[in-house]
Simulated assay, not measured.
Amino acid sequence: MLELHRRLIAATSAGQTNDAMAFRPHIGVAYCNSNELAGPLITKVDPLRELPTVDLCTVSAELVLLRREGAAYRWSTCASVPLGGQRHGNC
């Protein structure tokens, strides 16, 4: 995940001329649509930290415009950022 974050920053920073244009990518892995106490959720997720890591091939990332429509989120793809990954195997 950290490598993906680093590559997204590198891919989106090309051509930026000042800090005002800086983009901080957000990588989401879960969503909760209600108010919950953090403690019980942290307790449930903490054992996952003991699992072995998994390598994934990421060829590109999409920049999306996220909007709320009623009780659902909808998005439109604004741009696709190539990350230089190779397509192979399960990729």
Rank of each mutant, 00 (worst) to 15 (best):
L2S: 15
E3F: 11
E3Y: 10
L4F: 01
L4S: 03
R7M: 00
R7A: 02
L8E: 00
I9A: 07
I9P: 03
I9K: 09
A10S: 10
T12P: 02
S13I: 02
S13E: 07
G15D: 02
G15Y: 01
Q16D: 05
Q16V: 12
D19G: 10
D19C: 09
A20Q: 08
M21Y: 04
M21N: 08
A22H: 03
P25L: 02
H26F: 13
H26P: 03
G28P: 08
V29C: 15
N33M: 07
N33Q: 13
S34N: 10
N35C: 11
E36R: 13
E36P: 03
E36M: 15
L37F: 13
A38S: 15
G39C: 10
L41G: 09
T43L: 12
V45R: 10
V45C: 13
V45W: 14
V45T: 14
D46E: 15
P47K: 02
P47N: 01
R49M: 10
E50N: 14
E50A: 15
E50T: 14
T53S: 14
T53N: 09
T53A: 14
V54R: 11
L56I: 12
C57G: 10
C57F: 12
C57L: 12
C57R: 10
C57P: 05
T58L: 11
T58C: 15
T58Y: 06
V59A: 13
S60I: 07
E62G: 06
V64W: 00
V64T: 09
L65Q: 09
L66R: 01
L66G: 00
R67M: 02
R67H: 03
R67V: 03
R67Y: 00
R68K: 10
E69F: 04
G70N: 01
A72E: 14
Y73W: 08
R74K: 13
T77L: 05
C78N: 03
C78H: 12
A79K: 08
S80W: 04
S80C: 14
V81N: 00
V81Y: 02
V81E: 01
V81P: 01
V81K: 04
P82T: 01
P82N: 04
L83V: 02
G84R: 06
Q86W: 11
Q86G: 07
Q86Y: 12
R87W: 08
R87C: 14
R87G: 06
R87F: 14
H88G: 07
H88L: 11
H88Y: 10
